[in-house]
């Protein structure tokens, strides 16, 4: 599991999380995110490298979004990997996350995205292709 900062500025910080994002690394991931969450106005997490995920990581992402919403900060996730998308799909959390979800045409059939698509108060715009 690897956490890396890609871009760091006062207005936007972009970081990526790669590898095993399960309970084993949960504490470490949280530590990493906490560091950068408070540093700038907006935090962007690139999840393309997330290979393995469990509900604890899902919960962590939710917690971050919830906190951002309540404290007027901006957090967005981009390039959600397939494991991440699977969780968002089953848990109907697309609207809750409010991120723009990008699904490649060849992967489309892996997902349902039947529910959880209605926007939740305060979430940013959402589309799925």
């Amino acid at each position: 599991m690897e956490c890396k900062v890609i871009k760091s500025g006062s207005d936007v910080t972009e970081a990526e999380i790669k590898g095993d994002c399960t309970i084993y690394n949960a504490a470490e991931i949280k530590k990493f995110i906490s560091k950068y969450y408070n540093k700038s106005d907006s935090l962007v997490l690139n999840l393309s490298g997330v290979d393995e995920i469990d509900s604890s990581f899902f919960q962590l992402l939710l917690a971050l979004k919830k906190d951002a919403r309540e404290n007027n900060k901006r957090v967005s996730f981009i390039a959600h990997s397939i494991p991440v998308l699977k969780y968002i799909d089953l848990y109907g959390a697309a609207a809750m996350f409010g991120d723009r979800l990008v699904v490649k045409k060849e992967d489309r059939e892996k997902f349902d995205f039947k529910y959880g698509l209605k926007t939740v108060k305060g979430a940013s715009g959402n589309e799925s292709r």
Binding site: A26, S56, L60, A63
Partner: peptide
């Protein structure tokens, strides 16, 4: 879910 700073992952 508590505030992120108090959140225990």
């Amino acid at each position: 879910i508590p505030e992120f700073k108090d959140f225990n992952p």
